[in-house]
Amino acid sequence: MELNEQEKLLVSVIADGLPLVPRPFAEIGRFVSMDEDAVIRSLSNMVAGGIIKRFGLIVRHHELGYRANAMTVWDIPDDRVADIGRSFGQADCVTLCYRRPRRLPDWPYNLFCMVHGREREAVLEQIEQLARSMGLEDAPRDVLFSGRRFKQRGAHYDATPETLERTA
């Protein structure tokens, strides 16, 4: 899906957020010389085309009490990783699940799941259950909790890193 110049402008204008007024799409339209209908149609197309992954509220999970943010990583044989990744993705506790390259010798893991919770112990128990559910108790894995958060936003671009997915 290719965006035209007007749509690129629209993307840039709404990147920071929707105005809190009764008819926000009409208001946005005034900035980009589009009428309300055209703005709504264009945004609907972007959602349908996947350019906008989600349109809505974006929460700060720390502030909601989700302090235990566990990047759970596994070394899964390449011929099984897609099946296991899809299964992990079905689990309620998993918020993101990606396959990534190993970087040997420093990094032997190829499957990444984010598990967020309020307490570390509960998160570790969920991860243990996840492993058991797939018969992966003995698969090499590690759980990397996050410590300090150094940077949550950086702004420079039509869609700033802040407006993109949280974990690439």
Partner: peptide, 9 residues
């Protein structure tokens, strides 16, 4: 909330 709007791909 950090934002209210689109999350782009």
């Amino acid at each position: 909330l950090s934002r209210f709007g689109p999350m782009y791909h």
